[in-house]
Design a protein around this nucleic acid. Structure first.
Lengths: 163, 163
DNA sequence: CATATTAAGGATATTAAATATCCTCATGGA
DNA sequence: TCCATGAGGATATTTAATATCCTTAATATG
């Protein structure tokens, strides 16, 4: 079980968009070049993030993407779910229903979801809760510490020149 | 991103094996019938669980599988990782390294893993911690409450007759 | 000992999902 | 008007999941 590579791309793109000056847009082409990923396919990820209303776009020259909300109001979970969907990672196919000892169809039990699924879904919830607890603002704060000041500045200028 | 259906099967099978009397084995054929899943493919899941030393097998008539440890010493995580592997669900491909503004190769930063990956891995850890916290013994306790006594008993007899 | 039963594991086929590219369209800035 | 852009549909291509089949070695039972 692996998250799509588009999740990684979307997160990195949102991090970059967090640094954009008010009112500017950065096009897919440059986001793709900055991260070394195929432009056309990255575009699909950005469309998903756009449909989730996390970013907004505009057309034409000087068009592209920008965040639709403040970085503090966009969580990792928002972005992950925009790309991966909200379906739980564990899909219960109700194989308990195939038990040949069962007689009474629905009446036999099944008022509750399967106990195994409940455990798996709790773990899924713990995962999502963690992701919900980290915002793009938190990420940017961390990146400012991680990335060498020279590279940080240079990248900011590279991006700005393309908005 | 979806866990393999084999994870669900392996969990249900281990739940059944938890109820086996000391020294008895239950073959794949019956585990497959009980859950309504293809025997040959279920066999692959059981092989994985066996390689992880959670269950042990024996050959020949009256052969099959049994738990290799007490139910309280086998966690959901053990079983999930036996089938899915231990690799984190988020794979960092280091796309930060593709930033054209970078000059100094490794020297430019990268002493730490990427900040985005760190967050994703923390969430992955939260997921695994939850799964690690629930044992087969816990599951059986829950199932005893969930499943109608008549079905519980009947299933136990069905299984016993095949060991 | 002979036979039937079983798990292990390799080989291979089938299906579904992820990855990737291409094309058309409508929009908007220069 | 012209060009750059995102949206979105169509369609490969690649990889992973699902599934089946076959051979081998072990072992209980008659």
């Amino acid at each position: 079980m692996q998250l799509k590579s588009q999740v990684e791309w979307a997160l990195h793109c949102c991090a970059i968009l967090s640094g954009l000056p008010e009112g500017r847009y950065l096009p897919t082409k440059d986001l793709a070049e900055l991260h070394g990923v195929p432009k056309e396919y990255l575009s699909k990820a950005l469309q998903a993030v756009s449909q989730a209303k996390l970013v907004e776009s505009t057309l034409g020259p000087s068009g592209g993407y920008r965040l639709a909300k403040a970085p503090k109001d966009i969580s990792f979970l928002d972005i992950v779910e925009a790309v991966e969907g909200k379906a739980p990672t564990f899909a219960c196919t109700e194989i308990r229903g195939n038990n040949p000892c069962r007689t009474g169809g629905k009446a036999d039990c099944d008022d509750k979801p399967c106990a195994i699924a409940r455990v798996m879904w709790e773990a899924d919830k713990a995962w999502r809760d963690k992701l919900r607890g980290v915002s793009l603002a938190d990420l940017v704060k961390t990146l400012e510490h991680d990335i060498p000041p020279k590279l940080w500045k240079k990248t900011g200028e590279w991006v700005l020149a393309r908005t």
